[in-house]
Simulated assay, not measured.
Amino acid sequence: RALLAVGAEKVIAIEKDTRCIAALRPLAEAYPGRLEVIAGDALTFDLATLGAGPTKIVANLPYNIATPLLIGWLSPAQWPPVWDNLTLMFQKEVAQRIVAQPGSKAYGRLSVITQWRCDAEILFDVPAKAFTPPPKVTSAIVQITPRAAPMAAIAQADLERVTMAAFGQRRKMLRRSLSGLGVSVPDLLALAGLEPTSRAEEIDVAGFCALAKA
Rank of each mutant, 00 (worst) to 15 (best):
I12C: 10
I12H: 01
E9R: 15
A200M: 08
R117E: 00
A192D: 06
A210Y: 10
L3N: 06
G108F: 05
T138E: 14
P68A: 04
V11C: 08
D125I: 03
L88H: 09
P81I: 03
D41N: 14
S184V: 05
L88C: 10
L191T: 14
A30G: 14
S104M: 08
A39I: 02
L181W: 06
E201S: 11
S75N: 10
S104H: 07
E160Y: 03
M151A: 13
E195K: 15
A42R: 02
L174W: 10
L86F: 04
N85T: 09
Y107K: 11
A153W: 01
L159N: 05
P81D: 01
Q143R: 15
Q101E: 14
A59K: 10
K172T: 05
P127H: 05
R176L: 13
A23Q: 13
P68T: 01
I21S: 09
S179P: 00
T132N: 13
Y107D: 09
T114D: 04
V112S: 10
D84H: 12
A130K: 02
L178Y: 03
G33L: 09
L43E: 13
A210P: 12
Y31M: 03
G33V: 11
A200F: 05
T18I: 12
I144F: 03
A153R: 13
E121P: 00
R175T: 07
A190L: 13
L4C: 08
G51M: 07
G108N: 05
A130Q: 00
T67K: 03
T197N: 12
L69F: 14
G168A: 03
A5S: 14
A200I: 07
I141G: 01
I122K: 09
A5N: 11
L35Y: 06
Q156F: 01
P127K: 04
D46I: 02
L188E: 09
L27W: 05
L50P: 11
F90C: 03
I14Q: 10
I12Y: 05
G103I: 11
C209G: 14
R25P: 01
N85M: 10
Y107P: 12
P186C: 00
L70Y: 08
A165L: 13
R161K: 15
G108V: 10
T67Y: 07
G53I: 01
L24N: 08
